[in-house]
Amino acid sequence: MTQDTSQDSLAAALQTPDRRFVPQTAIVLGSVALIATAGVWLYQQQAMEQFKLEVSRQLAANKNSTAEFSQQLASSAKLQEQFSAKLALLDAKQAESLSQQQALNNMYEALTHNETHRALSEIEQILGFASQQLQLGGNVNGALLALANIDQKLAQLNRPELISLRQSITRDIDTLKALPYVDIIGISAKLDSLIKGLEDLPLAIDGYRQAAPAVKASASTTPLANFSDEIWQQLKQLIQIRRMDKPEAMLLSPEQSFFLRENIKLRLLDARTSLLLKDEASYRGDIAAALRYLEQYFDKKAPQTATSIATLKQLAAQDLAIQLPELGTSLAAVRSARTIAERAKQ
């Protein structure tokens, strides 16, 4: 029985199997799916290749860019090194220039302080002299000229510490310009003219000394008559009766007349000195004395005497009562500035 079974199995295995029916639609769909899958795979492969090519190109471009950037970076580093070297050189030159400039500034300051000190010493001397001339001689114009020169010197110095001094000088200039004008030179010239013309003034006694009139001989008279007329005229000259309001003028001898004129000259000279010293009381006293002498002892009817008397009256009316300012403020300012300059120099 076992043998029979084995023979049946072998016969069954050697037999051709029966063919089964496969639907046609399934085969088509499977083929389409297979083809689509293959197409997708091919597209992916092509896309992958293009992506690889693009990545390769990008990598190559990046590599070139990196090389160029590295080259530019190296060039920039070299330029930076050169710039750093030049900057260091410029810093060294700038430091040297600053050192030289500081040295020049120190020299300039030293020279400026020395110049300022010399200028202040000169200004102090000029101010002192101008103040003396102003107080002793009343020379306002000279003081103004001196102050103007000082102001010009201060403008040339142009130092900030001298501003207060210049302001003080300006105030003194304005004060002097505001003073009323007194023609000292003109008055002195008139006094000198009176002194020089004093010798030509006739005395009052000279007006009474008249020459005897000449006796004219008449052709119709006899020589005896002419002689008698001449004798009569001589007798009339011996005795003359005239009225004099000031008989003391007739008592002057020639020597007294000389001393009178010299006394008047001294009075006029004293008046000129008092004028320069601004001594109004002495000036008016001397002018009044000279005027009194002229009116008392000289011939007032003479043109020269009348002119001299009129001039003296005009000079007597001259107002000299002018309070001259002092330059003490400016002197104090210049001395203070000089002290500051000396301290700065040390």
Rank of each mutant, 00 (worst) to 15 (best):
residue 293 Y to R: 04
residue 2 T to W: 07
residue 339 T to P: 00
residue 162 L to G: 01
residue 135 Q to C: 02
residue 127 L to G: 02
residue 20 R to K: 10
residue 161 E to A: 13
residue 25 T to H: 14
residue 297 Y to W: 06
residue 226 N to V: 03
residue 192 D to Q: 09
residue 293 Y to Q: 12
residue 25 T to P: 07
residue 195 I to L: 04
residue 28 V to E: 12
residue 48 M to Y: 06
residue 190 K to A: 10
residue 139 N to I: 01
residue 69 F to H: 09
residue 217 A to M: 01
residue 9 S to I: 11
residue 295 E to A: 07
residue 14 L to I: 10
residue 325 P to M: 01
residue 215 V to R: 03
residue 65 S to E: 05
residue 27 I to T: 12
residue 61 A to I: 02
residue 36 A to W: 02
residue 176 L to R: 03
residue 307 T to G: 12
residue 344 A to N: 15
residue 306 A to E: 11
residue 175 T to P: 00
residue 14 L to H: 14
residue 251 L to N: 09
residue 49 E to K: 08
residue 208 Y to I: 13
residue 223 P to A: 04
residue 330 S to W: 04
residue 319 D to T: 12
residue 268 L to Y: 05
residue 185 I to S: 13
residue 125 Q to D: 06
residue 100 Q to D: 09
residue 264 I to S: 06
residue 63 K to Y: 04
residue 44 Q to E: 06
residue 21 F to D: 11
residue 328 G to R: 03
residue 48 M to N: 11
residue 336 S to H: 09
residue 337 A to F: 02
residue 142 G to I: 01
residue 100 Q to T: 12
residue 61 A to M: 01
residue 211 A to R: 05
residue 179 L to M: 01
residue 35 I to Q: 07
residue 103 A to S: 12
residue 285 G to C: 04
residue 195 I to C: 03
residue 224 L to S: 07
residue 48 M to V: 05
residue 283 Y to S: 02
residue 195 I to W: 00
residue 53 L to M: 05
residue 193 S to L: 07
residue 236 K to Q: 14
residue 219 A to P: 01
residue 163 I to H: 10
residue 32 V to D: 01
residue 338 R to Q: 14
residue 51 F to W: 10
residue 184 I to T: 15
residue 102 Q to F: 04
residue 298 F to R: 06
residue 132 Q to C: 03
residue 325 P to D: 00
residue 262 E to V: 00
residue 35 I to P: 00
residue 210 Q to M: 11
residue 304 Q to P: 00
residue 135 Q to G: 07
residue 114 N to L: 10
residue 163 I to K: 15
residue 243 R to K: 14
residue 38 A to C: 11
residue 9 S to G: 03
residue 107 M to F: 11
residue 37 T to G: 13
residue 111 L to S: 13
residue 92 A to V: 10
residue 96 E to Q: 15
residue 96 E to K: 13
residue 281 A to Q: 12
residue 43 Y to T: 07
residue 68 E to T: 09
residue 87 L to C: 05
residue 75 S to A: 15
residue 8 D to A: 10
residue 155 A to S: 15
residue 74 A to K: 15
residue 136 L to R: 09
residue 25 T to C: 06
residue 56 S to P: 00
residue 243 R to G: 08
residue 284 R to F: 04
residue 201 L to F: 00
residue 261 R to Y: 04
residue 65 S to N: 08
residue 243 R to Q: 13
residue 340 I to Q: 15
residue 265 K to P: 03
residue 88 A to I: 13
residue 124 E to W: 03
residue 52 K to L: 09
residue 54 E to N: 04
residue 179 L to G: 02
residue 107 M to W: 10
residue 64 N to I: 12
residue 83 F to I: 09
residue 27 I to K: 11
residue 325 P to A: 02
residue 173 I to G: 02
residue 162 L to H: 03
residue 179 L to H: 04
residue 277 L to M: 12
residue 197 G to V: 02
residue 27 I to G: 07
residue 142 G to W: 03
residue 32 V to F: 07
residue 109 E to R: 14
residue 242 R to N: 12
residue 132 Q to S: 13
residue 109 E to S: 15
residue 85 A to R: 08
residue 84 S to F: 01
residue 169 I to D: 12
residue 138 G to T: 02
residue 6 S to N: 10
residue 1 M to S: 11
residue 221 T to D: 03
